[in-house]
Design a protein around this nucleic acid. Structure first.
Lengths: 151, 151
DNA sequence: GACGGTTTTGTTATGTTATAACACAAAACG
DNA sequence: CGTTTTGTGTTATAACATAACAAAACCGTC
């Protein structure tokens, strides 16, 4: 994410938190910035390492607490299949997205596909299941890396 | 899973492995039995504990290696969102299923919903993404537990 | 601006999940 | 048989995550 886009995201995050009456403290802000700046999903310990630049001697709970907050606010997502975190592409509205995770280059694409969402909702109601959270992660090879294979 | 059903599953697993020319060794067999006997998803360390009954002083790699094999053969599934393993409900054909995971009772329901599968495939081809693995886990409250809430 | 409750942070320790590395054993196969 | 491949035992450690409790910061109100 370039610095202009990052500034937009941070401003949006500030606004959302203000609206909701929750506190985007400096630490939470730092973690959000680090996650969004990164070109790749970041593990909690990756973030922890980067925090050493701005925080003295941070410990795991520092990062996990900030991540918990950001997850609750929908500002970041957790990728369960790779134990990593990414900034949300469209934090404005609550949503459940799908992730295309390239096993070659590590790049992640966040989708919000209405057809997938619909089919999941149908299956849920058919089973009488009340979802709280949806994890949809497709792991494979992205278009770019498939191209490279042919070179 | 009752013992009759378990026997069927084990027999089916034996047959599949024979067909494929892979070895369902005693350890792998034990792990498959333990996973299938369990009413709930089992963590690797849960399995490890149960193995102490039949194997002397088993170590984590013992379990993880057996699980890797069983995952490759499609005989068990890994639930990424809860770091646990379940026996496959229909190991006969390769498939990617969806899991309804009840956060209240821990029960897991494996679906093979064609509409979900179709919508995922569509999204993949629209993105030029070649999937290797699909993780679809819905975490929430199952019908039975929703009923209990009302009592 | 002092108080009391609430939320956030600091800190230490520990729990849980997963793999690396290498030696040894067993099976497969000519 | 001997050799190659595959599976196992063992030790150690890496990677991911949380418990528990004390201290600090924030927030409303008197």
């Amino acid at each position: 994410m370039d610095s202009e886009r990052l500034a937009q995201v941070m401003q949006r995050a500030e606004a959302l938190c203000r609206e909701r009456g929750v506190r985007l403290t400096p630490q939470r802000r730092t973690v959000l910035e680090l996650v969004c700046e990164a070109e790749r999903p970041m593990s909690a310990y990756d973030i922890l390492d980067l925090m050493r630049a701005s925080v003295s001697n941070p410990a795991p709970p520092t990062v996990y607490r900030a991540l918990d907050f950001l997850l609750e606010q929908g500002l970041v997502h957790k990728l369960e299949s790779i134990h990593a975190f990414v900034g949300c592409s469209h934090p404005d509205h609550p949503h459940s997205s799908q992730f295309l995770i390239c096993a070659d280059c590590g790049d992640v694409n966040e989708l919000e596909d209405p057809a997938i969402a619909r089919s999941l909702r149908l299956a849920e109601s058919a089973s009488g299941f009340a979802p709280k959270r949806r994890v949809v992660e497709l792991i494979g090879t992205c278009a770019r890396c498939t191209g490279k294979d042919h070179e």
